[in-house]
Nucleic acid binder design. Sequence first.
DNA 1: CGTCTTTGACCCGCGC
DNA 2: GCGCGGGTCAAAGACG
Length: 343
Amino acid sequence: MEQRREEGEEKRSENFMANSTFNDEIPANFGGTGSSIFDDKWGPTGFGFVDLLSVNHDFSPPIFDSLVQAPFLPPPPPLLPASASTAAPPLAPSQEVLIPSPASTVPESSEVLNTAPTTPNSASISSSSNEEQSKVGGDDGEQDQDDQKSKNKLKPKKKNPKRQREPRFAFMTKSEVDHLDDGFRWRKYGQKAVKNSPYPRSYYRCTTAGCGVKKRVERSSEDTTVVVTTYEGQHTHPCPITPRGSMGILTDAAGYGAASASLPFVVPQYFHHHQQQQRPYIISPSPSLNITASSGYNNPISFPSLIQERRVPPSMTSSVLLRDDGLLQDIVPSQMRNELKEE
DNA sequence: CGTCTTTGACCCGCGC
DNA sequence: GCGCGGGTCAAAGACG
């Protein structure tokens, strides 16, 4: 127990950048059909596949793999430029779509999901959505009420037609750390053994009152270096600033709060500096991509750096980035910064 | 004391 | 109907 505690603390601090080792492969069960990760409940009813970040354990410059518009959930306005739009056509429910990275041409087929990440040291993101959101999806605030209801186990439960879930967004990360600190506060409320996997699956819930976002974390059994994190729901609050020097750029204090919505998803902040460990590298969005907006804090996951980058009006992008270089300078590839300047 | 994790039990959906 | 597996609850305990 105690050991586990300590381990947990260590994990928290090390976050994403633990001694991660990367390879090119995405476990076959990621994005595949019938996997334990993307089962019928949490699995993609339609998701994009996004290379999100690269981590290099040699402190070499960050690698920009790709970031593409995923066919995210509830209708982000089609702001994609033509090039990206063609790459990521609107999804029909239950349709799996691979969003090819800019550098690669990959057919749109679920079968090629595993081949999507073409760059070493990459993590991937996928999103999924529910086509039939009714109960939970209808009102975030009701989530807790629902939980309350179900607390009394002996009480006969409502027979919901079908349990509906929030939009989900999953991503993979190469890390020895299971629970990735994304800037939000989570409370673990369950853990289950995963069939056909030696690794348990952990369930977390956002501790912020009224926020029903859930997170599921499990380690791939196929590639034990891969941690799959699945978010469900949308935060109803800003990303709290953590005391560990995280970016915290979702806050209004940073001046971008109002526009904090450049992503239909939010991804963890990988920015906790860990001086002796590898630095986390944020992938910069491809210039040809346009991460569309949802609204406010209503993002299931948050990816501060991306958000910051993209929610800045083009006219001030470069200056902001430059001015804010502090961490970004370390994180955002120079290539990316140059690209942004050119915009 | 508040917060968080652990963990066994329970609930539920689904396939057979 | 039954069993299985996933998801959740909530009591108990640890920790700061």
